[in-house]
Write a protein that binds this DNA or RNA. Structure first.
Lengths: 222, 222
DNA sequence: ATAAATCTGTTGAATTTTCAACGAAACGGG
DNA sequence: CCCGTTTCGTTGAAAATTCAACAGATTTAT
């Protein structure tokens, strides 16, 4: 287990827990490490979600089948990401996705029940673990909610402005940076890249904002 | 406190906790009940998120200001909804929204720290409470994620089919119901209602699906 | 420093969405 | 059963998005 300490410590789930306690805790919770070859199924659709997964090495994909069996890749999982936590915590009776190794990988599996139900001695680091898991879910909630708010606007211009206004407010400054290049921003906003570029140019010509690469600046009140 | 028992028991946060334990627990956690007149601020933007709110009666709105001070209503809160839980659990240093009473209302406030840090006697119902809160966040995560997946499709047709395929799969049947009328479905999919109606008609003419009010049925493999 | 690769802005045509308006159908009371 | 109200489907015109293609700018590797 020790050889995985370095990667485990990068995992938000274990924030603020000392090496010693982490190792003790993993044993106490019966954490298992399993290796999967390429194409092997880590979590199978339709099962109940019992385990939280932690990717230690390699890569996997979240795969979804629709009603007619059309397959689509929802997300890519690399170390040190955790996965399956929402389904496990929601006690989903049947998860709608599979997680499949896209290259050989090592995964730590922890029974979610062992996380949620603190052991009888009510140890402080176990509380920290619950706290971390809760924070992880809550943070994702906020991010999802913000994305929905932004992408629910109907036009590219509105989406872009909504996004930039969030970032400006967040950084509390007239001039601010965004963590995306044009293509990534277009993907986030769910619009066409060229249309996005055109809209940025238009806002520039109108004197509303200025931009150089990832740095934007509002010039006027809307 | 007893007079609010009926409404509190409807709150998912307290699922599976007996009346006795619930009342004891609320006292133990220092839950406060506060009344707000119309237009009063329950949570103010910019503060740290310390409390989880439970609406006991009346109505409030989640309000957001953008960088330039333009105000928009994000959501409406009625009993027995809880609110602020994501910000509190994520330990947001500064919440980006205000919650403002839109009619006189009564709100229960619980310090989130008192929920997350179990009391020294490690009582079982406190674990249940943590469990419920986690489940609430996780369930919302799954719902948000699904909505993002559906609305990230680019055309009305794709959005509609993605949504219907989810519902069909969920109900495991050729014929299935949806919980929306046309306008609500259009809002969920973030498309125009008339365009949605047109698309449904088109799918009908193409022999792909049949529908009568809220009941849909796929006729062919895509 | 140069070449290759990637990113970005522009354009115009084709497709799609939105918007407004209207009538038919469904619903709920009285 | 009739009437008022809401929901639903249709239509055509206006607006916006997507798509493909390309050239200039920027970055990376050698």
């Amino acid at each position: 287990m020790e050889k995985y300490l370095k990667i485990l410590k990068k995992c938000s789930l274990f924030y603020g827990i000392s090496d010693d306690n982490l190792l003790k805790m993993l044993t106490c919770m019966g954490a298992k490490i399993i290796s999967f070859d390429k194409k092997y199924t880590i979590f199978a659709e339709g099962n109940t979600a019992k385990y939280i997964g932690i990717m230690l090495s390699g890569t996997a994909q979240t795969v979804q089948m629709d009603y007619f069996g059309n397959r689509s890749v929802i997300s890519v999982i690399k170390a040190p990401h955790i996965f399956g936590e929402a389904f496990a915590c929601a006690e989903a009776e049947s998860v709608p996705v599979s997680v499949i190794a896209s290259e050989p990988c090592e995964v730590m599996l922890i029974d979610c029940g062992h996380i949620l139900h603190t052991c009888s001695n009510n140890c402080g680091f176990h509380q920290q673990l619950i706290f971390n898991l809760m924070k992880d879910l809550a943070t994702k909630n906020i991010m999802f909610h913000q994305k929905i708010e932004i992408t629910s606007k109907r036009t590219t211009r509105e989406k872009l402005l909504a996004y930039l206004l969030f970032r400006a407010k967040e950084q509390g400054a007239d001039s601010f940076e965004i963590p995306f290049d044009r293509q990534a921003l277009a993907d986030y906003l769910e619009v066409d890249r060229s249309g996005l570029s055109a809209e940025i140019s238009k806002l520039r010509r109108e004197g509303i904002l200025e931009c150089r690469k990832n740095r934007f600046e509002f010039l006027t009140k809307l």
